[in-house]
Simulated scan of single mutants.
Amino acid sequence: MAIDYFEDEDKAPEGATLEQLREYADDITLLQDEIDKDTRELAIKTEKLKKLTQKTVPDIMNELQIKSFKLLDGSELSVEDKVQASIPAHKKAEAFAWLEKYHFDGIIKTSVSVSFGKGEMEKAKEAQKILAEKGVVAEIDRSIHPSTLSSFVKERLAAAGEAEQSQGEPVVDINDGFDDEDGAEKEEKIPNLPQDIFSVFEFKQCKIKVAKKKK
């Protein structure tokens, strides 16, 4: 019979025997098998849910030309446009250069990290206060949070769509302190987002807003 390993789990078993060890080994094997099975089943269910919410239901609602639908219990089924974006590692320099050129580098997060050896806590504390004076070589890392990048890309795609409809081109103000000959601020045309640099995935996602239960 298997031992209840959830009872007094912080307490070592008294009078340990080889039989107890065998039972614990059997429990480990059983639990691992159950976890593996649950993991596989979760992956299957996750994929089914993804297909339903990103393909099947959006396609049906598109065919019926509806954006939302009321269910019998008062819940609402709706579909919205989603964008996921990422920057491949080998394109990071190009992507950041493009963002800087068109003054979108505000979304880039810059962090400085310094590595210290064993027993150098005091030096680390000092460097934290007067990093430059200590001559510590710091490593600079630049990154963009995934959700921030996706939001930015979604905005640029929307701007490109609006410009296409109005047959115009989006522009950005260049506030560099210099004006052109007639005193107006400089403006620069922004090209469409280079999708050979930014990896963009556009899709539709359905969601269900559950109706509040009446008290």
Rank of each mutant, 00 (worst) to 15 (best):
M1N: 11
M1F: 09
A2G: 10
Y5N: 10
D8H: 15
K11C: 11
A16H: 06
A16P: 01
T17G: 03
E19R: 09
Q20G: 05
L21P: 03
R22G: 10
E23W: 05
A25Y: 08
D26S: 08
D26F: 05
T29E: 15
D36A: 15
R40I: 12
R40A: 15
I44P: 02
K51W: 14
K55F: 08
V57M: 06
L64F: 11
L64P: 00
Q65T: 15
K67Y: 07
F69Q: 05
F69E: 01
L71T: 03
L72V: 09
E76H: 09
D81H: 09
K82G: 00
Q84C: 03
A85F: 00
A85K: 02
A85Y: 01
P88V: 09
P88W: 08
H90P: 00
E94R: 00
E94V: 01
Y102G: 01
D105E: 06
I107S: 05
K109Q: 11
T110L: 00
S115P: 01
F116M: 01
K118D: 14
E120Q: 15
M121Y: 11
E122Q: 10
A124F: 09
A124Q: 10
A127V: 06
I130H: 11
I130W: 04
L131F: 05
L131Y: 04
E133I: 06
V136L: 12
I140C: 02
R142L: 03
S143A: 11
H145Q: 14
S147N: 15
L149E: 00
L149Y: 02
V153Q: 03
V153I: 08
K154N: 14
E155F: 08
L157M: 04
E162T: 07
E162D: 11
Q167I: 05
E169R: 06
P170I: 02
V171Y: 08
D173C: 04
D176Y: 03
G177R: 02
F178T: 13
F178K: 13
F178E: 14
D179T: 10
D180I: 07
G183D: 00
G183A: 01
A184L: 11
E185F: 04
E185M: 09
K186W: 06
E188V: 15
I190R: 07
I190N: 05
I190M: 07
P191W: 01
N192G: 14
Q195K: 08
Q195G: 02
S199F: 11
F201R: 14
E202D: 03
F203C: 02
K204D: 10
C206Q: 05
I208K: 04
K213S: 14
K214C: 06
K215I: 13
K215T: 13
